[in-house]
Nucleic acid binder design. Sequence first.
DNA 1: ATTTATTTTTAGACAAGACTAAAATGTTTT
DNA 2: AAAACATTTTAGTCTTGTCTAAAAATAAAT
Lengths: 222, 222
Amino acid sequence: MNALLTTSAEENYLKAIFKIAEKEPGVVLTNALAAEMGTSAASATDMLKRLSDKQLVAYEKYRGVTLSETGNRLATALIRKHRLWEVFLVDKLGFAWDEVHDFAEQLEHIQGETLTERLDNFLGHPRFDPHGDPIPDAQGKWMRRTQTRLLTLSPGQRGIVTGVDDHSPTFLQYLAELGLSLGAELEVLERTAYDQSAKVRIGERETVLSEKVGQNLFVRII
Amino acid sequence: MNALLTTSAEENYLKAIFKIAEKEPGVVLTNALAAEMGTSAASATDMLKRLSDKQLVAYEKYRGVTLSETGNRLATALIRKHRLWEVFLVDKLGFAWDEVHDFAEQLEHIQGETLTERLDNFLGHPRFDPHGDPIPDAQGKWMRRTQTRLLTLSPGQRGIVTGVDDHSPTFLQYLAELGLSLGAELEVLERTAYDQSAKVRIGERETVLSEKVGQNLFVRII
DNA sequence: ATTTATTTTTAGACAAGACTAAAATGTTTT
DNA sequence: AAAACATTTTAGTCTTGTCTAAAAATAAAT
């Protein structure tokens, strides 16, 4: 029953620390945090002191920072809210998956436990957001997603799109144009050893996808 | 196509000015604004200077303030967003009408024209919010609501609840307990001259409503 | 038309969150 | 182990939005 007063700025820092630690487990360095936040190292240091005072992180000067138990819970709740709102924006309001990030970035800061839970209920307790990213449940438990990259499929193998590792609108729009939305099926026809590009079949269409695409597209092999 | 950068604090002041001017047309005085905002006159003065710099209000020191064309448009858009979100919270998420104000107060500050319009569309372009207050359209046009107070009905007259003039949770909860939600039908049976209280029939039940209730309940006579 | 009372503004401080420039610490290199 | 480089922190300043206390302007009253 902890109220836990946090500002949007603090929450964004917590999320950033979480995100960096997710990719690169261990201590998060001030510069990495500043880069992720698009701010200066000085500002990051300032904020780390504040977060440390509030017991949301364990911070040692010059050594870096990790989330505390509470900080982790808060960051997880934030991601939960962000992704639930993304589902709402796409499934209910009809936005495309490349349009929702900025709105969700604002909506995730709306305070009130009951709102999140009612939203979750309204949406039918989705386990993944429109980009295939898992949505932690109210207790903060995560569901594992298929992390097989298209890159690893051999000719003849077929897969279903389960997510992306690059959330930039340009990539998402490109995928949409190719018919590669979440749940789409594709088959690898050929692979070029030279540049790791792959000829694939998406429905009736055949296209060549670069290594970069193969790297950033998650599939479940079928 | 004006971006019009405004902070939540600025928006709340604009709304407060709008609200006061709605009840008491004319110039809004600093003290009234400070009272509405629950802040000091000094803070209100500070903010009025800022809003004046941004051309959102016409402000003359010691004389008071009025909204500019732009300020008015902004305040209206804010009220539109607030009330649309209230409809969402009640109709879609299943909140009671006395629970939604604080959430809507946060949600109204979410930036992005397209979000509001998609939400409006999703909700089926509602013209009134869960309290019966009119929702201005995208152009800022208002719909007039029946402003007949229950107080004015004579014995024998029947009415349909169309709104409330007191939005406090206690009043709204009381009404809900009585079965007096929006659209509910009632009939005035007797009226006591002494205290303006009224015996009314709501469905099968008969109750006595005080003058205060009669004053704060809007009905359409049928 | 002064005095009195009310309203409003200024002055000076503070907290959050950001910045730049400079100092301090840590890490690598020679 | 000192020099060179990279990283991080401190110091000082800025803006937004708030506060209290004091000064100034307006309105009311004698």
